[in-house]
């Protein structure tokens, strides 16, 4: 579903960010991307939702290839992904339900369906009682739940999360992580960048470690994971 093949990414100002990165995330998988700051975790995630394109190599996400995509393909792809950031990226002047409804309005959901769907999403993330609150009236953990509800609005096939617990305390982190596990249990793949090694150890999920722009460890390499160069790698993009 998400496949990186020999991806190199070079920025004009800062030089090489990724070097020969190859991995694949299959349907319904939960994958951590770990590594120190500046290792290239965020760049990998940005490549996943096509905010960046590789300098060389190919990124293929749910049938959209960095080698052949057209600009109009990007909105279509992003509607099939949910993206969550460390800084939540909520619209401060809209209340919780408007922030979630926004994602549905943008994608052309029928107005009659938006209300019930927003209520369900807020119930799913445990914020049904705070629908009319403004983001600044919520705790960090609650704001992140709103961001997750927004990311789930269009039933994504994969949730991409860049340090989603980076700004949260221990308790909120546990709550958010459990939410991700629940989402994953419903069949949505989760690709989560974090440097919280305790969390990674406790979770026992597949872990890809990045350092200086290269993959230095992939727990799936020991068993089960089929790299993109493997002849029998499943074409499960659609």
């Amino acid at each position: 579903m998400i496949r990186f093949s020999h991806v190199h990414k070079r920025f004009a100002r800062t030089g090489a960010a990724l070097q020969d990165v190859t991995f694949q995330v299959n349907k319904g998988e939960f994958v951590f991307i770990t590594g120190p700051s500046g290792a290239g975790k965020s760049t990998i995630l940005k490549l996943c939702f096509f905010e960046e394109q590789p300098s060389t190599g190919e990124v293929k996400v749910y049938g959209t290839s960095s080698a052949t995509f057209k600009p109009a393909d990007i909105p279509r792809l992003r509607r099939r992904l949910g993206v969550v950031f460390q800084d939540f990226r909520l619209l401060e002047d809209r209340n919780v339900e408007s922030n979630v409804a926004f994602a549905l309005e943008v994608t052309g959901t029928a107005p009659s369906q938006i209300g019930p769907r927003v209520s369900r999403l807020l119930a799913q993330v445990g914020l049904a009682a705070k629908a009319t609150a403004l983001p600044r009236e919520l705790s960090g953990g609650e704001q992140q739940r709103v961001a997750i509800a927004r990311a789930l609005a269009n039933d994504p096939v994969a949730l991409i999360a860049d340090e989603p617990t980076g700004n949260l305390d221990e308790r909120a982190t546990r709550g958010i992580f459990q939410l991700f596990r629940d989402i994953n249990a419903n069949g949505t793949a989760v690709l989560m960048a974090t440097h919280d090694l305790d969390l990674v150890r406790r979770a026992g999920c597949r872990t890809i470690e990045v350092n200086r722009g290269q993959i230095v460890f992939d727990s799936a390499s020991d068993g089960g994971f089929r790299g993109p160069d493997t002849p029998d790698a499943a074409e499960d993009d659609e």
Binding site: F49, P75, R89, L91, V106, T107
Partner: peptide
């Protein structure tokens, strides 16, 4: 910020 969020959730240009 609003534009960035719109694009993130899949709004067309």
């Amino acid at each position: 910020r609003e534009i960035a969020v719109m694009r993130l959730v899949g709004a067309t240009n």
